[in-house]
């Protein structure tokens, strides 16, 4: 349980909203922001139709003058949308100057937690900001369960690295759910150039989770074996031709790329599989009979299936 003392003196409802010039509000991803990759459309439609329901919460950056800047504590999405809708002023609650960074951060966290899901990048943002202000052990024990994450330091480290180490393209993929956490973890072990090159493939071709992991593994291995940087490998004509092939749909491209890389990574295995298929074809088995090797020819056993159909009378 989170200690009550963090929040017990903040009575937000008692702070009356005041009109703030939107150009005085810094809407870049600030110290309390935990929003990433959101679709502004529905919120813009809602505000256009019925106006702003909840006032954003701000912290003052200056000394209390008219020219002060404000940083968003809660309502980051609302401020962005209001600016897009060309509002010039909006009613906002401004926190007392003595409000600590931790209180600001927790206020935003607890306002958001019950009303929306966090994507993996947003979890990373929240946990990174918490870890800057609280002991790591406390973040692991008290806060990770709030996101349904296991209380492991290793998991905390992964989410923090998603926020701090991944490039925008990879983060966008993670936020959209188009890059699995397993793949993100593998990518984080690579250098930035390699990561960006791989993400270029993942952003244009839809690989499933397993294919993503396989693709990264094959590319990484081949780069080591052939002493060829990943960026060079992925620019080779064989691969780029598949990527740009207009006659293939996305799943076909993913399968073709995996097949190509696998044949290059496991040449003996792929040749043996081919030989096996050829051998079975030459047996000219009767219709309904099928011979399949056990997965990846690792056992000496084959399975023989015979499908007997009863003739219709």
């Amino acid at each position: 349980m989170i200690k009550v003392s963090y929040m017990d003196r903040l009575k937000i409802a008692d702070i009356l909203p005041q009109q703030i010039n939107l150009n005085q509000i810094d809407d870049s991803s600030g110290p309390y922001s935990m929003s990433y990759g959101f679709n502004p459309g529905p919120l813009a439609a809602s505000i256009s139709r019925i106006g702003l329901i909840n006032s954003p919460i701000l912290a003052r950056e200056g000394k209390g003058g008219a020219e002060d800047e404000f940083v968003v504590v809660s309502g980051f999405r609302r401020i962005r949308v209001l600016k897009k809708l060309n509002w010039t002023k909006a009613p906002c609650r401004v926190l007392p100057e003595a409000t600590s960074s931790l209180k600001c951060l927790l206020l935003n966290l607890y306002e958001n937690l019950p009303v929306r899901n966090f994507n993996a990048v947003e979890m990373g943002m929240a946990l990174t900001r918490l870890a800057e202000l609280l002991p790591k052990e406390e973040v692991v024990k008290d806060f990770m369960p709030l996101f349904d994450l296991p209380s492991h330091e290793e998991t905390l480290h992964l989410f923090m690295r998603i926020e701090t180490a991944l490039e925008t393209q990879a983060k966008d993929l993670v936020a959209r759910g188009s890059l699995s956490l397993q793949a993100a973890k593998l990518l984080l072990e690579m250098d930035s150039a390699a990561r960006q090159k791989i993400c270029r493939y993942f952003s244009t071709i839809k690989f499933n989770k397993n294919q993503q992991a396989q693709f990264i593994d094959f590319v990484n291995d081949l780069s080591h074996i052939e002493d060829n940087p990943i960026s060079g490998l992925l620019d080779e004509p064989d691969l780029t031709e598949i990527r740009h092939n207009e006659r293939m749909n996305s799943p076909q491209k993913a399968r073709a790329l995996i097949k190509l890389l696998r044949a290059r990574r496991l040449p003996h295995l792929v040749k043996t599989e081919k030989r096996f298929r050829h051998m079975v074809e030459n047996l000219a088995l009767p219709a309904g009979c099928q011979i399949t090797p056990l997965p990846i020819l690792k056992a000496p056993i084959i399975s023989l299936k015979s499908f007997l159909k009863r003739e219709k009378t």
Binding site: D221, H268, I296, L297, A299
Partner: peptide
């Protein structure tokens, strides 16, 4: 290291091991 360069398959025990003929 170059020890990961070989052709590995997943064995019956879940471990990566060289393809049987190797």
């Amino acid at each position: 290291t170059s020890i990961l360069d070989g052709e590995f398959i997943t064995g019956l025990d879940g471990k990566a091991r060289y393809f049987k003929p190797i």
